[in-house]
């Protein structure tokens, strides 16, 4: 899923300051699951903003609404009935959702309330970790199911570097060395031999190297 974290309140306040009526929009997908922008966080941010402005003597009106999915136009359409009552939109969705709202309501300022962080998995309750960078050419089949692009600090495809210590990355003892994990997994699978095959330099065109990407499923696209 896509993970995100709420922006510092101060930054959000700066966006919202010029306005009196705000439509605060949550999303019931990824950002709900990673506890950044679901109905609950919308409620919390709404209350926090109102108090922060009250303290400055301003009565900020906040209308809360959480969409099923903010990156689909049909859902975003739901906002049309309330958009006129707001001077600006504050979105707690990932960057996709923010842009979808901005695209649909072009004359309404839209601000992000979260920082979209990464594509990750939930390691346990309350902990999410990066797993994928969407490079468009998945290597997991040859790296034992662990991605060196997303999980090695240096994106080494032929790691590990000399900084690997006790299974941890040189940048922090809290970060696992991806290549240690790859090696352990290759061993567990009896594929140690595969390690010495040199993985060639990557074709980054499938990733961001090729400019903004688009998927068109001919059979589905209208």
């Amino acid at each position: 899923m896509i993970t995100a974290e709420r922006k510092p309140l101060e930054e959000i306040i700066a966006y919202v300051r010029p306005f009196d009526r705000i439509l605060l929009v949550g999303c019931n997908e990824c950002v709900t699951v990673c506890a950044a922008g679901g109905r609950k966080e919308v409620g919390i941010l709404s209350s926090a903003l109102q108090m922060a402005f009250l303290k400055q003597g301003k009565n900020l009106q906040v209308k809360e609404h959480t969409l099923e999915r903010q990156c689909d136009p049909e859902y975003v359409e739901e906002l049309s009935s309330m958009i006129d009552g707001a001077d600006a939109v504050l979105s707690m969705a990932c960057g996709c959702g923010v842009q979808e709202v901005a695209r649909r309501y072009r004359d309404k300022p839209v601000f992000p309330a979260v920082n979209t962080t990464f594509m990750g998995a939930s390691e346990r309750q309350g902990v999410w970790a990066e797993r994928c960078q969407g490079c468009g050419d998945c290597l997991l089949g040859i790296t034992g199911g662990i991605c060196p692009i997303a999980r090695c600090s240096k994106q080494l495809l032929n790691g590990p570097c000399g900084g690997s210590t006790h299974g941890k990355c040189e940048i922090s003892p809290d970060v696992d060395c991806a290549w240690q994990l790859i090696w352990d997994r290759l061993k567990a699978l009896g594929l140690e031999n595969r390690y010495e095959e040199i993985i060639p330099a990557k074709d980054w065109r499938t990733g961001r190297g090729g400019g903004p990407r688009k998927i068109i499923r001919e059979d589905l696209a209208e």
Partner: peptide
């Protein structure tokens, strides 16, 4: 209608 099946309740 509100549930996102996020598993948080399952875990906590």
């Amino acid at each position: 209608s509100k549930c996102a099946a996020c598993l948080i309740c399952v875990r906590v």
